[in-house]
């Protein structure tokens, strides 16, 4: 993080009156894989094209984000203000209406369509679908950690519309497409940073016969990984490749290529090609969602026929032959 800041400062002082972009992080960068990727992507873009990027951390007090966003807009010093997550659409809408001359981009969330706002969402359901299918294959397999019951789990850090309406159903659908009889257990931790809670919930699910859990829970997931390790069961990671944390337990991760996404957005913005007034959702086809196919641990721990089935599914989704909700 320090390095990033230093870079930022160098960039900042080198270029005067250049194109400039502000990233309002809803949280803090350090320790958050997605934000680390976002900042990396943004810095890469800024270096490749020679514009300014300023990172502003909003901190964990969510009530401070909106005032900060509006303050940023009010300075009129940035050509584009980028902010993130499903917590911000209303704030972006408010700021965009207050400052119609200011351009905004919301990434990982969809804001209402306004002439000065571009939103980029991710097809989270594709991630969940991949994870569900993979989990379904694992629980059916005869891996040492898999039991005879066809039960899989999912732990969410919190509930929000995208979670309940997209990720959870897609996960279920993916699992059912592996085997119709698969049962799915779903738990909500109520926090993204409570490993103890994750540990308890994992214990609960494993005790009911679950052998693989899809973790969409941030720091809370650390506890679940610990429990899985203790019991010799499996988990699936999300967003970034974290297999190295526990190669025996984390069989695979579904990836959100946030660095690539923000790079593309900033590139388009710099070149004046950002489709303002529109929102887009990127998924496998756009290269924004991936899977840990190349990870050595994955190659080692996951049987070949499962790996082949995953590639097959991935390509079908990429070609549009399969969509998680069948439409």
């Amino acid at each position: 993080m320090k390095k990033i800041l230093v870079l930022m400062i160098v960039v900042l002082s080198a270029v005067v009156n250049a194109y400039s972009v502000a990233l309002l992080i809803t949280g803090e960068v350090g320790g958050n894989a997605i934000y680390e990727m976002m900042v990396q992507g943004a810095v890469r873009a800024s270096k490749d094209f020679g514009f300014d990027v300023k990172v502003i951390e909003g901190g964990y007090n969510s009530s401070k984000w909106e005032p900060l966003l509006i303050s940023l807009a009010s300075t009129k010093s940035y050509d584009l203000i980028v902010t993130f997550t499903e917590g911000m659409p209303k704030s972006v809408e408010k700021a965009a209406k207050m400052f119609p001359q200011q351009k905004f981009a919301l990434i990982d969330g969809i804001a209402p369509n306004l002439a000065n706002v571009y939103s980029l969402g991710f097809k989270d359901e594709e991630m969940a679908y991949l994870a569900g299918y993979f989990a379904g294959l694992i629980t059916k397999s005869n891996l040492p950690g898999a039991n005879s019951e066809l039960k899989i789990g999912m732990i969410a850090g919190d509930i929000y519309p995208a979670m309940t309406e997209k990720m959870k159903p897609a996960y279920e659908k993916g699992a059912k497409s592996a085997d119709e009889k698969t049962e799915i257990f779903f738990s909500v931790a109520g926090s993204w940073a409570d490993p103890n809670k994750g540990y308890e919930l994992a214990q609960l699910q494993f005790s009911q016969g679950v052998d693989v859990i899809f973790l969409v829970a941030g720091g809370t997931g650390i506890g679940a990984i610990k429990k899985a390790k203790e019991l010799g069961r499996y988990v699936i990671g999300v967003d970034s490749n974290v297999i190295y944390l526990a190669p025996d337990v984390i069989l695979a991760c579904v990836l959100k290529r946030a660095d690539m996404a923000i790079y593309e957005v900033l590139k388009k913005a710099y070149l004046g090609k950002l489709p303002l007034g529109h929102s887009e959702r990127w998924g496998i086809r756009e290269g924004a969602i991936g899977f840990t196919f190349d990870d050595p641990s994955y190659l080692q721990n996951v049987p070949e026929q499962i790996r082949e089935k995953m590639i097959d599914l991935f390509e079908k989704v990429e070609r549009g032959e399969i969509t998680p909700f069948g439409d």
């Binding site: 800041l5 400062i9 502003i56 951390e57 900060l68 303050s71 300075t75």
Partner: peptide, 12 residues
Amino acid sequence: AQVSSIMADVTP
């Protein structure tokens, strides 16, 4: 503090 963190390199 907020303004200087937005406008200059003063971290929070």
